[in-house]
């Protein structure tokens, strides 16, 4: 379903963040993406969500080359891809409810159906009682979870998560991972970028390992020289 075909990415200034990356993720697969800081994990997620474009090579979803899409089609691609951002990216002067409802409002949901879905998403991340709060009044981990609720609220077929457990304690991390697994079990493809090798080892899913922009391992367990 998701395919990287000889993808390289160099940022303006000539820094090569990714070099000839090849991999595929099947529909309904759950995959971890790991590597040191600066290895290019976020860059891969940015290419999938069309925040950045590859310098060479193709990123394809369901055999559609993303670089072929028109500018006006980008929003519709992003509606199919739920993204959890490393730095949360919440609307700071809107309530938790409004933040989670945003993707639904954009898609034209209103009224009861919208409220029902927002409540379901907030319930999954355990923040139903905080729905009237402003994000500023929440802890880092709670903000993280608001971001997760927002990414899953419109049930996207592909879910990308960038350090979703970065600010969470081990117990909460496990809960959140279970939320992802639950999504995965109903057919959603999930790609999680994370440093948390312990978490990866426990969960035993396929793991892509990046090192300085190159794919060095694609296996069930992270490669030795990672650790």
């Amino acid at each position: 379903m998701l395919q990287f075909d000889h993808v390289s990415k160099s940022y303006p200034g000539g820094f090569v963040a990714l070099e000839r990356i090849n991999f595929r993720i099947a529909k309904g697969e759950m995959v971890f993406l790991t590597g040191h800081s600066g290895a290019g994990k976020s860059t891969i997620l940015k290419l999938i969500s069309m925040i950045e474009r590859p310098s060479t090579g193709r990123v394809m979803i369901n055999n559609i080359d993303l670089s072929r899409l028109k500018r006006s089609q980008v929003p519709y691609v992003r509606r199919d891809v739920g993204i959890i951002f490393q730095n949360h990216r919440l609307l700071m002067n809107h309530t938790v409810f409004d933040n989670v409802a945003l993707p639904l409002v954009i898609e034209g949901f209103t009224g009861k159906e919208m409220v029902k879905r927002v409540h379901a998403a907030l319930d999954k991340v355990g923040l139903l009682d905080k729905q009237r709060c402003l994000p500023e009044t929440l802890s880092g981990g709670e903000q993280q979870r608001v971001g997760i609720a927002r990414a899953v609220v419109n049930k996207p077929p592909l879910l990308l998560a960038d350090e979703p457990t970065g600010n969470l304690d081990p117990e909460l991390s496990r809960d959140i991972m279970q939320v992802f697994e639950a999504f995965n079990q109903v057919g959603v493809s999930v790609l999680v970028a994370t440093h948390d090798l312990g978490l990866i080892a426990r969960m035993r899913y396929r793991t892509l390992t990046l090192k300085q922009g190159r794919m060095i391992n694609d296996d069930l367990i992270p490669s030795r020289d990672q650790v």
């Binding site: 006006s72 929003p75 509606r79 993204i83 990216r89």
Partner: peptide, 16 residues
């Protein structure tokens, strides 16, 4: 600006 970026990230069209 920050707000608009977030809206674009979750799939809002320019016209929205």
């Amino acid at each position: 600006q920050a707000e608009i970026e977030v809206m674009k990230l979750v799939g809002a069209t320019d016209s929205f």
